[in-house]
């Protein structure tokens, strides 16, 4: 592993451990509720329908059939909360890549190492991707193991497909944060852009089911490519994955080129 990737991962270590624990605890806790819900399908369905007004339910993905294993996983894990937490994790790691150290002025010494700036950005990106992959693998393991224990009856291949989409989604937002930070050196701006895009993307995608005007707009939302193909039911969605991956690659390239041509820490 290149020395800067290793060093960056070492710097991320606490954040990665913390977010992994948080995401796994959330996913594990909710997965463990499944037997109760499966035992009383009518009660919990109705409770869920009654608890949230329709608009909120739409944002949460409908909550229609979450007493089956697949419906439950989709509604409770893959619809909103886990992507939300994981995106926050990715954005925070994304700010730590360049903009954070630049504002803290610790980037200056790193920059004066005999490393090309392009390589610096690429290695930071590689560390971001590796760190997020670690969180993804561990959270997938927790969901798969607990899912088997509570008889979710969702094949591992489907979970893997959904989790791959999730990973690519958060990698996109992490890379967006990294890219805005690389281009501007401003941490708050990078977080704001990524956060606003995530929220807007989510809302647009959720409303696109009903609102005609949102349909074309939802093609600009990463959530469209994350959820539209419903990988938990249909398996791997290669096309959607490639769109997310391509967008990430474009952002990473933008980060490399923009960081290479600007003044740092002014």
């Amino acid at each position: 592993m290149p020395v800067l990737v290793r060093k960056t991962l070492r710097d991320y270590r606490r954040a990665i451990i913390g977010w992994t624990i948080g995401i796994c605890a959330f996913a594990g806790l909710y997965t463990s509720f499944f037997p109760q819900m499966a035992a009383n399908p009518d009660f919990y369905s109705q409770a869920a329908q009654a608890k949230y007004p329709e608009g909120v339910r739409k944002l949460m993905g409908g909550l229609e059939n979450f007493t089956t294993g697949v419906g439950f996983l989709q509604a409770v894990i893959y619809q909103l909360f886990v992507p939300l937490l994981f995106t926050m994790c990715a954005v925070i790691l994304g700010t730590k890549a360049l903009a954070g150290p630049e504002e803290a002025r610790t980037l200056e010494l790193t920059l004066t190492l005999p490393l090309d700036r392009k390589r610096l950005v690429l290695e930071r990106f590689a560390a971001l991707a590796a760190g997020l992959l670690a969180v993804a693998v561990l959270s997938l393991a927790v969901i798969a193991v607990l899912g088997a224990m509570v008889d979710l009856n969702v094949p591992f291949g489907r979970m893997l497909a959904a989790h791959t989409g999730l990973y690519l989604l958060v990698l996109f937002f992490g890379t967006l944060t990294l890219a805005v930070g690389a281009a501007t050196g401003r941490r708050a701006l990078a977080m704001a852009v990524a956060g606003a895009y995530a929220v807007a993307g989510y809302v647009v995608h959720a409303l696109a089911a009903d609102v005609e005007a949102m349909k074309w707009l939802s093609h600009l939302s990463p959530f469209h490519y994350y959820m539209e193909g419903n990988p938990l039911v249909n398996g791997f969605q290669v096309g959607d994955c490639l769109v997310l991956l391509a967008a990430t690659a474009v952002l990473a390239l933008t980060a490399v080129l923009s960081f290479d041509r600007r003044d740092v820490g002014v």
């Binding site: 020395v3 800067l4 060093k7 070492r10 710097d11 606490r14 803290a104 002025r105 610790t106 200056e108 010494l109 004066t112 190492l113 005999p114 490393l115």
Partner: peptide, 30 residues
């Protein structure tokens, strides 16, 4: 830059890493 030693004017060092470890990292790259 391998042949240059540079001390920034506003030197910032942060984190939970020990100073010795950080120096080893810099030495490893240079």
């Amino acid at each position: 830059r391998r042949r240059i030693g540079y001390l920034p004017g506003e030197l910032a060092l942060e984190g939970r890493e020990k100073a010795g470890e950080y120096l080893r990292f810099l030495a490893g790259v240079r």
